[in-house]
Amino acid sequence: MSRTDRMIALGREALLEVTGFFSEEGMKPVPLYLGLPEAGVGAAVKRDELIKALLAVARGRLELAGMYEGGRAGFFEALVAAQTDLRTGRSGPVALVGAVDSLCDGMSLRALAAKQLHLGALNPDGRIPGEAAGFVLVARPAAARTSSREALGVLLATALGEESRPFARAVPSMAEGLTQVFRQLRGAPAMGSQRVDSVLACQPGESFWSTEFSRAYLRNAALMPEPLRFQVAGEGLGDCGGGAGPVMLGAALFPSARQQREASRALLYGSADGGRIGACVVGTSPVS
């Protein structure tokens, strides 16, 4: 299957989880904000074909509001756009935010191999190709309170940034972009002076990304968990590109049995190879 075909299959499967919401009579089409792969990483994606196939799953109950080709940052860019439109009233009371990506097709694998980016004998610090898709329904607070569906969490802060020395340049990371993104989160009104309880990264397992996080972490220690709870998508999922964002959000919204007994704040972030960065902090309530 091509990269586009694999993304369609993944996206359809994920959308089937929420199609029941779109079947309500009299409901206006819900706007979709979709994160997509960044250009130059893996095979080309037929965007029109992908969007057409995904919208067909909702049978007219979903309309495209925006596409964000930010790779691992794309989901967060889509989330910020949806949040802005909800706050300003440019959209209805709810929006669907998602992302889909695959690096497991033949052309993408050959592209990774040509650049020796994959894990192997020639690059023991490489990445394992992966794929994922996911969607989350976000709503204005008033709409969430009156809905019959239980809210899984609350979006406390979002931030976007750009790294001037990204992975794609093959130079040492100074983490200036990620540092600034974490500072934006620290300054969000809803954060106050509280720390987050965990950090979830959408990154592959390469040492470049651990160095980037370590430097940004030290410059924003007051925001970080103590002791540090840090989970990296690449350790269990490989490099899912833009698809890692919603999956890691799912991990934050459905924590371990021990964590379910207490309220928590999770920081999620994604850094693209080309330098775009996105992040958010999500609060969850204890489960009785």
Rank of each mutant, 00 (worst) to 15 (best):
residue 236 G to W: 05
residue 11 G to T: 02
residue 81 A to P: 01
residue 180 Q to V: 09
residue 286 P to Y: 04
residue 215 R to C: 08
residue 118 H to F: 08
residue 277 I to Q: 06
residue 138 V to W: 13
residue 55 L to H: 06
residue 49 E to Y: 00
residue 194 Q to R: 15
residue 238 G to M: 02
residue 96 L to H: 03
residue 259 Q to Y: 04
residue 197 D to Q: 03
residue 236 G to D: 12
residue 227 P to H: 12
residue 181 V to S: 10
residue 82 A to N: 07
residue 274 G to E: 07
residue 32 L to T: 00
residue 254 F to Y: 14
residue 60 G to S: 13
residue 265 R to F: 02
residue 84 T to D: 14
residue 238 G to H: 08
residue 54 L to K: 08
residue 200 L to P: 00
residue 161 G to C: 09
residue 97 V to E: 00
residue 256 S to G: 13
residue 196 V to S: 10
residue 134 G to N: 08
residue 34 L to S: 06
residue 188 A to R: 10
residue 168 A to T: 05
residue 278 G to N: 07
residue 154 V to E: 15
residue 120 G to P: 00
residue 235 E to W: 12
residue 272 A to D: 05
residue 62 L to P: 00
residue 118 H to Y: 10
residue 261 R to W: 01
residue 254 F to K: 15
residue 111 A to K: 11
residue 189 P to A: 15
residue 57 V to P: 10
residue 34 L to Y: 11
residue 284 T to N: 08
residue 225 P to G: 15
residue 220 N to Y: 01
residue 201 A to M: 12
residue 106 G to T: 08
residue 252 A to E: 02
residue 133 A to N: 05
residue 29 P to F: 09
residue 74 G to E: 04
residue 127 R to G: 13
residue 136 V to P: 11
residue 252 A to L: 04
residue 276 R to Q: 13
residue 151 A to I: 04
residue 110 R to L: 13
residue 205 G to I: 09
